[in-house]
């Protein structure tokens, strides 16, 4: 399916209301509400016309005002891909795990929890793994984070 057909198909057949973002990238782009993430994931994973079984990447982003979690999913059989994200506020960043749908999300979600401080509900094993076990300097991937012994890199003229 082309990008337009894919966008139409997902919009028509998914019961929630994902917001479509137009851009010049080869894959469709959606913004999904945090409470819809699991339902949306289940839909694109199980639908016989989509079969998005391959999780390419899951990344957290801190824009300064809000958190975003970006899911990049592709289909091995049908060779198309989709890009969707969910937006979380700074006060209570919480999202449900998609571990049951894509087991590959396991470490990606742990990383998002560890480096951004976003709570992943129902994740069975949220423990430190990239940072030292006695780490107490907050969430290093957040914007504006400064560590105890960070030396700023000289600006290029």
């Amino acid at each position: 399916m082309t990008k337009e057909e894919l966008t139409e198909y997902i919009k028509d057949n998914f019961s929630g209301e994902p917001e479509v973002i137009e851009n010049d990238q080869p894959e469709p782009y959606f913004i999904v509400k945090a409470e819809d993430v699991v339902a949306f994931s289940r839909f694109i994973h199980d639908d016989p016309k989509l079969q998005m079984t391959f999780m390419m990447s899951l990344s957290g982003v801190d824009t300064g005002e809000r958190y975003e979690i970006v899911y990049n999913i592709c289909s091995y059989r049908l060779k198309h891909r989709v890009f969707f994200k969910t937006i979380l506020n700074h006060e209570k960043p919480e999202v449900d795990t998609v571990l049951d749908i894509w087991p590959a999300a396991n470490w990606y979600e742990r990383e998002v929890w560890e480096l951004f401080g976003i709570t992943i509900r129902n994740h069975p094993n949220l423990t430190r793994f990239l940072l030292p076990e006695d780490w107490d300097e907050g969430f290093p991937m957040c914007k504006g984070w400064v560590g105890k012994d960070v030396i700023p890199f000289p600006e290029r003229k």
Binding site: T53, F54, M55, M56, Y76, W102, A104
Partner: peptide
């Protein structure tokens, strides 16, 4: 398992 764990 290749699909589940995104082995490539």
């Amino acid at each position: 398992m290749v699909h589940d764990y995104a082995i490539s």
